[in-house]
Computed example of a mutant assay.
Amino acid sequence: MGKIVALTYLSLDGVMENPTWTGPYFNAEHAAYAHDRMFSADALLLGRVTYEGMAAAWPHMEESEGQGAVRMNTLPKHVVSTTLQEAEWNATVVCGDLATEIPKIKDQYTGDILIYASGDLQNSLIELGLIDELKLWIHPVIVGKGKHLFPEGIPSTSWTLAGTTTFSTGAVVLDLRPANQEAQE
């Protein structure tokens, strides 16, 4: 069974929106880390807005981005949406009850099913206990405004630090697992 792994860029103040502020912290270390995550994944799980943005950009990037873009374009994608009727870019639309549909997706794979950005989707899956891992890529910058990953009112959940990756630029990836996951394993 695959596992749902959410990989999200965050500022120190918890902003995830429009992460152009990550640019100064992106180097060869970051590229290798991102490459390894993508090439170890079996599929992507995306919210509609993230999917539409990525689907508009990635198919045109193979010449400039090489094998990373080829991999991104060929990975199976599952798009959670209540409004999208059909999807292209090697994608299927997921609608209906997430508590029922997400386990069906997990059953199709043995490796990671990555979520990039898609904050509303992440929060819905956290509330349902369906995220197996959070990889919060924290950048040493305060953005000051923008959409936060965890909105006010999200139910309290406990997480266990499973590891960290520290980059020379000061960015850190926190690898977090649901605290109750250890009790289940």
Rank of each mutant, 00 (worst) to 15 (best):
M1P: 12
L7R: 03
S11R: 03
Y25L: 01
F26D: 06
E29G: 05
A31I: 05
A31H: 02
A31W: 04
Y33L: 06
F39N: 13
A41K: 04
D42Y: 14
Y51G: 05
E52R: 09
A56H: 13
A57N: 10
W58Y: 07
H60I: 11
E62M: 12
G66C: 08
G66H: 07
Q67N: 13
V70W: 01
R71E: 05
N73V: 10
K77R: 11
K77M: 07
T82N: 10
E88F: 06
N90E: 07
T92S: 05
V94H: 08
A99F: 05
T100Q: 14
I102W: 10
P103K: 04
P103L: 08
Q108C: 08
T110D: 15
D112N: 15
L114Y: 05
I115G: 12
D120T: 14
L128P: 01
L130H: 12
L130A: 03
P140A: 06
I142V: 15
G144D: 02
K145C: 10
G146C: 01
K147F: 04
L149K: 05
P151S: 13
E152H: 12
S156W: 05
T157Q: 08
T157F: 00
S158W: 01
T164I: 06
S168I: 08
T169V: 03
V173G: 00
E182Y: 10
